[in-house]
């Protein structure tokens, strides 16, 4: 079981949280100008790295806020958590 630091509530048990996939996936500004494959890439394809991964979590049973987590997908080690809008921390994997 992981202990995750909610940027607001502090350290909490993993069971209070839900993970929601890769963070910093920007929605295209003009979707109508995209080809089907470009749109499909945005909707379905993720980087899926082995190692350092920036991802979105929500503190479901706590303050119900969304935030970002930097996690190693191999070891589950969490390097950092940060609020939406905050600078993406640079982590060397």
């Amino acid at each position: 079981m992981l202990i995750i630091t909610c940027p607001w509530c502090g350290q909490r048990d993993q069971s209070e949280f839900t993970a929601h996939g890769e963070a910093h996936v920007a929605r295209p500004e003009h979707p109508e100008q995209l080809t089907e494959s470009q749109w499909g890439d945005y909707v379905f394809f993720r980087s899926n790295p082995k190692g350092v991964h920036h991802e979105r979590w929500v503190h479901t049973h706590g303050c119900r806020r969304w935030f970002n987590v930097v996690r190693d997908t191999v070891t589950d080690h969490i390097f950092a958590t940060y609020r939406p809008g905050e600078r993406k921390p640079e982590i060397k994997g």
Partner: peptide
């Protein structure tokens, strides 16, 4: 005070 869970209940 804290928002947390008890079993499946928030």
């Amino acid at each position: 005070c804290a928002q947390t869970r008890f079993g499946h209940a928030s």
